[in-house]
Amino acid sequence: MSAAAPPKIRVEGLDAWFGETHAVRDVSLDVRPLSVLAVIGPSGCGKSTFLRCLNRMHELVPGGRATGKVTLDGEDLYARGVDPVSIRRRVGMVFQRPNPFPTMTIADNVSAGLRLNGWKGRLEEIVERCLRQAALWDEVKDRLHSPATSLSGGQQQRLCIARALAVEPEVLLMDEPASALDPIATARVEELMHELKARYTIVVVTHNMQQAARVSDQTAFFYMGELVEVGDTETIFTNPREQRTEDYVTGKFG
């Protein structure tokens, strides 16, 4: 089942807690480079928490902590002395609800991360490139200096994707990126994921099984904080190893 190339991300024995709640239990899996891994499971199964452990965002929540090993190209993200800030520059994230900076213009939102890193080059070109990658350029090229809040929800979400792309991450984490969007905007974001996996490794959490089936190469099924099964998406949806996976993907529960 594993490809010849070494994994982009390898998770080994990952546990995560919110205070006393054990939200992710002993999860191990690999993510292949330049592929899409979909993480599915019922609400509260720990899939979002798992995702947030991959760029060390989970520990920002009061009471949030994680143990285990997560390696990015063989480098342990949880090793002593690793600065979470530098990890988040390599592992970008798109959230459930579009969260552009409301006080900034469209262009400034895209370049926000670059300006943080003290980028001195020409921002305009990067803004254009990222907006094109996020399939938003044609809709906003004439109003780059309008407020980001003037965009529709779906446009805002693509703006957030462009913003995440601008810092040139290697991995893109997406936490139910289309759940707050209408069907047309959802289709655009899914299309975008197809294009983006040519350059980025993507891990996407979704509660929408059709979406997982459409966009992903591999699928991981989480239940009650445990990884029940991970494998090629086709296998998970047509011929899963575990009964619980089959029950979930066929809609018997969840």
Binding site: M93, F101, V167
Partner: peptide, 26 residues
């Protein structure tokens, strides 16, 4: 909104940068 702060942090902002970039302007 916490999502704004998280947005900044996910871009690789330090806590102070997130304050300057997202929290204070808002």
């Amino acid at each position: 909104p916490a999502s704004l702060k998280e947005g900044a942090l996910a871009l690789g902002a330090t806590r102070w940068e997130a304050i300057r970039m997202a929290i204070l302007p808002y």
